[in-house]
Simulated scan of single mutants.
Amino acid sequence: MNPIRMAVLGLLISLPGASYAQQPVAYPAKGQSTETQASDAAYCRNWTQSQTGISQQMANQPAAQQTGPAVGGGQRVRGAARGAAAGAVIGGVANNDAGHGAGVGATAGVVAGGMRARQEKRANNAAAVNQQQNTLATFNQAYGSCMTGRGYTIR
């Protein structure tokens, strides 16, 4: 491959959002022509998809992140209910005012439920990123194996 083509290819590969940005780079080890390399790369992308069920576009998609306020799953409502029950008992015992205790407990329960919702959201986002990294690694490993089998050095 001539130096200008290699420079352009290197630039395209390094651009953010380029579809090949995270794909292994294959170097011809047996003097393959540019056309042969393009044909082999297309074959290996198709083979990889047929073997793994993962397309290159799927492998390069950013992980889906949950955004916005953490309201999910009813954690706040359950926290309020638990807090109100505990507050009513404590308020009734401590100063003979179960209603005030229930109110204070419900407020504390909403806050605690919100904390649980945010923790769950962070855990879900981390799991999505981990799944995406595993998907990309699976695709890249299969693609690299295919290209190695066709006589390329993979980096």
Rank of each mutant, 00 (worst) to 15 (best):
P3A: 03
P3K: 06
P3Q: 06
I4L: 15
M6A: 11
A7T: 11
A7W: 15
A7K: 14
L9V: 08
L11R: 07
L12G: 05
I13K: 11
I13C: 02
S14K: 12
A18G: 06
S19A: 05
Y20A: 02
Y20S: 03
Y20L: 13
Y20V: 14
A21R: 15
A21E: 10
Q22G: 08
Q22T: 07
Q23V: 15
P24H: 10
V25A: 04
V25P: 00
V25W: 11
V25F: 10
V25N: 00
A26M: 11
A26G: 06
Y27W: 10
G31V: 12
Q32W: 12
S33C: 08
S33G: 06
T34H: 03
T34A: 10
E35R: 09
E35K: 10
T36Q: 14
Q37A: 11
S39L: 13
S39I: 13
D40W: 04
D40A: 06
A41I: 15
A42M: 13
R45T: 14
N46K: 14
N46G: 06
T48K: 04
S50A: 14
S50G: 03
Q51L: 10
T52P: 01
I54H: 00
N60T: 09
Q61L: 14
Q61Y: 01
P62Q: 12
P62D: 09
Q65R: 13
Q65A: 08
Q65W: 05
Q66N: 08
T67E: 09
G68Y: 14
A70L: 12
G72R: 07
G73E: 13
G73F: 14
G74E: 05
Q75W: 15
V77I: 15
G79N: 03
A80C: 06
A81D: 00
R82L: 15
G83I: 07
G87P: 02
A88S: 07
V89W: 03
G91S: 06
N95M: 06
N96M: 07
N96H: 12
N96Y: 00
G99C: 05
G105Q: 02
G105E: 04
G105I: 01
T107P: 01
V110Q: 00
V110W: 05
V110H: 03
A112W: 01
G113K: 07
G113C: 07
G114Q: 10
G114W: 13
M115D: 06
M115C: 02
Q119T: 08
Q119V: 02
Q119C: 00
K121C: 00
K121E: 15
R122C: 00
A123H: 07
A126Q: 15
A126H: 11
A127I: 08
A127P: 02
A128G: 05
V129M: 09
N130D: 12
Q131F: 04
Q131P: 02
Q132E: 01
Q132D: 01
Q133T: 09
L136P: 00
A137S: 11
A137W: 10
T138H: 05
F139H: 03
N140D: 10
Q141M: 10
Q141L: 13
Y143S: 00
Y143C: 03
G144M: 07
M147L: 15
T148S: 11
T148L: 03
G149F: 12
R150N: 04
G151V: 13
G151K: 08
G151A: 08
Y152N: 00
T153D: 08
